[in-house]
């Protein structure tokens, strides 16, 4: 989507006499875009079409498409016993990762604007999770969360609590995964927000202070509006990411306990590949639904939020 928007931009030339030149420019632009278009066609659009085709076919036991079954896979999915739970889990997960993730990153970014000694060290330290892979951090978290020998329960024991079954209690497991995800996401969010904060000119604050503004008023009237592009970007990107999260769930809970952490993506995986399953038809139907969900949410976000974003 965004690719199309940028490719259309160079053709917008105001004078008629420059039409020919602009066509040549368009051609050049197209040539420049060609490599990425080819990559997109081969690795994105072709699989997309294939997924759609798979979703309207049944499979043999090896996963090869056999009969055209129309919307049967979609009907089976929508009327299936788990679908509502899966959707609920997917959306809950998105909310409990995106909101705290950006909130905490914003709080930290504001703290890190303080002019104190060693602030660079803290900036680097807080941004560090960005450098960890999902798999590495998930394995570390699985040790932290372990209810028998984990550090987190160790702290809780010190406080006199009985400890929590972080990954085996169906009421807590999703939150545990969200904690790991927020931590992992934090570094990136922080980098983006810190950069945004750094770009806000000091004069604006000075002027506002001269007018008698301070504290909350400064944050609300200057910091937040000028940080809106970064916040908007993070909200859109993290929402899409949270809807597509897989690694943490795969490593920490495998969708359990009792399916309480089975999001749409994990469900796709388990239908297509896990435990000897190769129901590519059903899994592809789920994948198409996920695509629609992401499209709708992103469109809504653009529709509602982007209007309030002030681009300098």
């Amino acid at each position: 989507m965004t690719g199309n928007a940028t490719s259309a931009a160079p053709s917008r030339v105001s004078t008629v006499s420059a039409a020919r030149a602009s066509r040549r420019e368009g051609m050049t632009a197209f040539l420049f875009l060609l490599p990425s278009l080819v990559v997109f066609l081969v690795f994105v659009f072709y699989p997309l079409v294939q997924s759609f085709s798979l979703s309207v076919h049944s499979n043999d036991i090896i996963g090869r498409p056999t009969l055209f079954v129309g919307l049967e896979n979609y009907v089976a999915m929508l009327t299936g016993p788990d679908f509502r739970l899966v959707l609920w889990t997917t959306f809950s997960f998105a909310i409990i990762t995106v909101v705290p993730g950006i909130g905490i990153a914003l709080g930290l970014a504001l703290l890190l604007t303080a002019r104190i000694r060693g602030i660079r060290f803290f900036r680097t330290a807080f941004a560090l999770p960005f450098a960890f892979s999902v798999a590495t951090s998930a394995v570390v978290f699985s040790v932290l969360f372990n209810s028998a020998v984990g550090v987190l329960n160790g702290f809780l024991y010190q406080l006199g609590s009985a400890g929590l079954n972080w990954l085996t209690d169906p009421g807590i497991a999703l939150i545990s995964i969200a904690i790991a995800t927020v931590w992992l996401q934090l570094g990136y969010d922080l980098l983006v927000l810190a950069a945004g904060l750094g770009a806000i000119p000091d004069e604006l604050y000075e002027a506002a202070r001269l007018d008698g503004a301070s504290g909350w008023r400064l944050a609300r009237s200057i910091t937040l509006p000028l940080l809106a592009p970064q916040l908007f970007f993070l909200i859109v990107v993290s929402t899409i990411q949270s809807l597509q999260n897989f690694g943490q769930i795969y490593i920490l809970t495998r969708g359990g306990p009792s399916n309480s952490t089975t999001t749409l993506v994990y469900s796709i995986y388990s239908k297509a590949f896990a435990f000897g399953s190769s129901d590519f038809g059903f899994a592809s139907a789920e994948a198409v639904v996920l695509l629609l969900i992401v499209l709708v949410i992103t469109t809504i976000q653009f529709g509602i939020l982007e209007r309030r974003v002030f681009y300098r």
Binding site: V49, S53, D60, I62, R64, P65, T66, L67, F68
Partner: peptide
């Protein structure tokens, strides 16, 4: 014998 594809209208299929 495995049930094999019956094709359909699409080129891909």
């Amino acid at each position: 014998r495995l049930r094999r594809g019956s094709g359909g209208g699409r080129l891909l299929a």
